[in-house]
Design a protein around this nucleic acid. Structure first.
Length: 284
DNA sequence: AGGATAGCCTGCGGGC
DNA sequence: TGCCCGCAGGCTATCC
């Protein structure tokens, strides 16, 4: 569900309600949705772990902290408190942060000092929250393996990520260690816009193609942010409002339909485990 | 190195 | 109406 534009839209929709607010109380309804330092496997393979999880205390949900910043990197967002604590939110496929109480799948509830509330909902539970005791360590710990943020990716940055990589460029774009923020929708959209085949080997992109692709990634993501993200099914901002960026998709979800440039039916294949759609005529 | 596969979950739409 | 199937915006572990 949420790629960079959706997370950025969510972040912006939360700034006004959250910044400068102090968290009065919080309730964790599912222990395995919150990962503490020292929890097994950094939080994945959660339910399979036999190790007894550490006890969650209110401080782990930022209770008593005043929110001073909402920071995004790639598809993740950190809620930063003035005392240095932070909670990193990763939405996975169906994660949501909402200001009104959801009907179901509510895993965390917070109450702020103005009486308002915030809820984390995630039906499929592919998402999670990571407690970071000191935000100064964030870039060296939880975010250490993330590549450069896709919203500001440069041709040089992309060329560096692609150098020496024999994988298909589609796989490269989906790899958060190479480039942070692009997912299945915007990978296909950016490749179409830059007229590059998803199958092209990353290390065989020309300098001009790196330039075109970097520009296409920035343009695709900014346009999607302007449209407040893509809502296919689950995505909502903090107020529960859907986005409109899905109306601008040129290839995603259009397999077999005519290419909007040349009219040929769009091709589809599974690449890097994800459904990929492109135009064999326009993308080389 | 990087591909392919299975798995983590729930929900929805299509076919019957 | 209901059942079964495939599929979904993410990511990890494991095997080759």
């Amino acid at each position: 569900m949420p790629e960079l534009p959706e997370v950025e839209t969510l972040r912006r929709s939360l700034q006004r309600p959250l910044l400068k607010r102090t968290i009065a109380s919080a309730t964790l309804h599912r222990r395995d949705i919150l990962i503490l330092p020292g929890d097994p496997a950094g939080g994945f393979s959660r339910s399979r772990s036999r190790k007894r999880p550490l006890r969650v205390r209110p401080e782990h949900l930022l209770v008593g902290g005043t929110i001073i910043e909402l920071r995004r990197r790639g598809k993740q967002m950190a809620v930063v408190a003035g005392d240095g604590r932070a909670l990193v939110v990763h939405l996975g496929m169906t994660g949501q942060l909402l200001r009104t109480k959801p009907k179901d799948h509510t895993h965390i509830s917070w109450t702020l000092d103005d009486g308002s509330q915030l809820f984390f909902r995630d039906p499929r539970r592919f998402g999670g929250l990571w407690f970071i005791p000191g935000v100064s360590t964030l870039d060296a710990t939880r975010w250490a393996d993330l590549g450069p943020d896709a919203l500001t990716i440069t041709a040089e940055g992309l060329a560096e990520a692609a150098a020496g990589s024999k994988r298909a460029v589609k796989a490269l774009l989906l790899d958060q260690q190479a480039l942070a923020g692009v997912g299945n929708i915007y990978a296909d959209e950016a490749l179409f816009l830059s007229r590059i085949s998803p199958r092209r080997r990353a290390d065989r992109l020309s300098a001009a193609q790196c330039q075109a692709l970097a520009l296409a990634i920035r343009d695709t993501l900014s346009a999607a942010i302007k449209a407040r993200g893509s809502t296919l099914r689950d995505y909502r901002d903090a107020a529960g409002e859907p986005g409109e960026a899905q109306n601008g998709h040129r290839v995603y979800g259009r397999a077999g339909q005519p290419c909007l440039t040349c009219g040929k039916p769009l091709a589809t294949a599974i690449m890097a485990q994800r459904t990929t759609v492109w135009c064999r005529g326009c993308q080389a």
